[in-house]
């Protein structure tokens, strides 16, 4: 049981939740995630540790409502408990001083991107961050990102904030302007696919953090498997970060839809309950 000590909405469907978890706060590194489960009958879902405060013994989760479990989580309030929370899982991001890093995040991918931006900045890199969303209201963590980025570029589909256009347009702008040593893209699978295609054109080494379906998160079930460079990999133990130029994103997108029908039905039942 882990108590929620703080909660706020970053946009209509995205909440920042700070949870009591002293051991994880101490052990976690950027790139790590946790698995949570709500209630006896809940399912296990993975969420990135967006931030941690070792002294206070808390970790921060940023959650977007997409289905039953994420909806249940953001409906919890300060003082409520998350029934099960385990971690930190996954391999930590390999953070070192490289030079100029281009960080691109879309949708709720911005949450897992934050600790990476922070980590690279603190390691002495020049960090340029591109955040993308459909409109102004869906942009999250703008101030936090600004704090740890040498430059922050906002892209929206409708131009209601920053520039009008897709995340890839923002990335291209930077790449054409200056030398980028490494790129990181995190967001919906389709965004990562095109982000990776963009950097590939310029031969920039690129990492993507994959958000596949998971059950245990400890390498026991294989639900999270993806094809990377023709080989099957388990995202929870071999990742979540992989060489974006080698990931089979088309297969990953199909696999994300494996339970779509069941999930839609479950969500309708939840709304009616």
């Amino acid at each position: 049981m882990n108590k929620i000590v703080f909660k706020e909405f970053l946009s209509e469907n995205v909440a920042r939740i700070v949870v009591d978890a002293p051991e994880i706060a101490k052990s976690r590194k950027p790139g790590h995630f946790v698995i949570i489960k709500i209630g006896k009958k809940g399912e296990r879902i993975p969420l990135t540790i967006a931030d941690a405060d070792e002294k206070a013994g808390t970790i921060t989760l940023i959650v977007q409502k997409v289905g039953v479990t994420s909806a249940k989580l953001i409906a919890l309030n300060v003082g409520d408990e998350i029934t099960d929370l385990s971690g930190p899982l996954g391999k930590a991001t390999d953070i070192k001083k490289i030079g100029t890093i281009l960080c691109a995040g879309g949708g709720v991918g911005v949450a897992p991107l934050f600790p990476i931006v922070q980590g690279f900045k603190l390691a002495g890199n020049r960090v340029i961050t591109v955040l993308a969303a459909r409109n102004k209201d869906l942009i999250i963590l703008e101030d936090e990102m600004k704090k740890y980025s040498d430059e922050l570029i906002i892209m929206t589909d409708d131009g209601s904030s920053g520039k009008k256009g897709l995340v890839t347009a923002g990335m291209e702008e930077v790449i054409q302007r200056e030398k980028v040593d490494e790129a990181i893209v995190i967001g919906p699978a389709i965004m990562m696919k095109y982000g990776a295609l963009t950097t590939k054109k310029y031969d920039i080494p690129t990492q993507a953090s994959l958000n596949t379906i998971m059950v245990d998160g400890t390498g026991m079930c294989g639900a999270c498997r993806v094809t990377v460079g023709g080989e099957t990999k388990f995202v929870c133990i071999d990742g979540p970060e992989f060489d974006a130029h080698k990931v089979d994103f088309d297969q990953m997108m199909k696999r994300l839809g494996a339970y779509r029908q069941e999930e839609v039905e479950a969500y309708e039942n939840y709304l009616n309950s």
């Binding site: 400890t218 079930c221 294989g222 993806v226 099957t232 133990i237 696999r255 494996a258």
Partner: peptide, 21 residues
């Protein structure tokens, strides 16, 4: 814990999973 697969074509299609899963 770690389930083995056979590494044959099409094994990552939906509806194919390990016994553990």
């Amino acid at each position: 814990g770690l389930p083995k697969f056979m590494n044959i074509p099409g094994e990552n299609f939906n509806g194919i999973m390990s016994a553990n899963e």
